[in-house]
Nucleic acid binder design. Structure first.
Length: 233
DNA sequence: GAGTCGCC
DNA sequence: TTAG
């Protein structure tokens, strides 16, 4: 039942609320939208190629494979975490961010500038993502918007301190989640992929899309009005 | 198995 | 400042 994942509803039942600013949208993308979005993303990623991120310092590979769409992409290697405009293996610019994702951002982010990065994470069965914060973006006032495609995932979200207690939520194909406001810097991760719970992703598993604004937008100018603003307003 | 902790 |  979808209401079980609703922050207000659940806090009333368990007394263990989700962080303020965290939204698990009640309506998920329908099957047609999921298929169309995945086809677009896989076409772009197919041309660019997946890369295998590794841990800073140790060089140990993460269990997920990654690609990015947009003007900037998140990468991790022995040198550390960063955003960069090109694919780490080929040096090519990331493929463009699909219009459908720009529209989704505009509809749910509540932020007046477009996203610059869409991190595409591929979780095959057994892949996980340890508890972490998204804090490599210069503009932390913008939310992170996540779209789940494929197999169900157990998503854990805690507080802004690593040892804060957390909650586990099932993310299903088509689910949209927004980490904004006070939840923007909450620790979160993927504990487990539930194999065989969706047939959407070829070869099985889950693909997660995270839309992010990376850089602080340029200051508003009367000669170059920003989207969502109005002169004299 | 879920959750927490400590450490390389 | 470990997304291990």
């Amino acid at each position: 039942m979808s209401h079980l994942n609703d922050p207000q509803q659940h806090s009333l039942v368990s007394g263990k609320p989700l962080p303020a600013g965290f939204r698990h949208l009640p309506g998920r993308l329908d099957a047609t939208a999921q298929e169309g979005l995945l086809a677009e993303v896989l076409a772009s990623v197919g041309a660019a190629g997946w890369f295998q991120p590794t841990m800073p310092r140790s060089g140990r590979p993460l269990s997920v494979r990654m690609c990015n769409l947009g003007s900037l992409g998140w990468v991790s290697d022995k040198e550390g975490y960063r955003y960069q405009p090109h694919h780490p293996d080929t040096g090519c610019p990331w493929p463009p961010l699909p219009a459908s994702l720009l529209e989704l951002w505009q509809a749910v982010a509540g932020y007046p500038h477009p996203p610059e990065a869409c991190l595409v994470n591929l979780y095959r069965t057994g892949a996980r993502m340890g508890l972490h914060q998204d804090r490599d973006e210069a503009d932390l006032s913008a939310p992170v918007v996540s779209v789940s495609l494929g197999d169900d995932a157990l998503f854990r979200i805690g507080g802004t301190n690593r040892r804060d207690p957390g909650r586990t939520i099932v993310l299903r194909s088509g689910d949209v989640v927004v980490l904004g406001g006070a939840s923007r810097l909450c620790f979160h991760g993927i504990d487990r992929i539930l194999p065989g719970t969706s047939a959407l992703v070829p070869g099985g598993g889950r693909i997660n899309l995270t839309l992010r604004r990376v850089s602080v937008p340029p200051a508003a100018s009367p000669f170059s009005p920003q989207p969502g603003t109005r002169p004299g307003g």
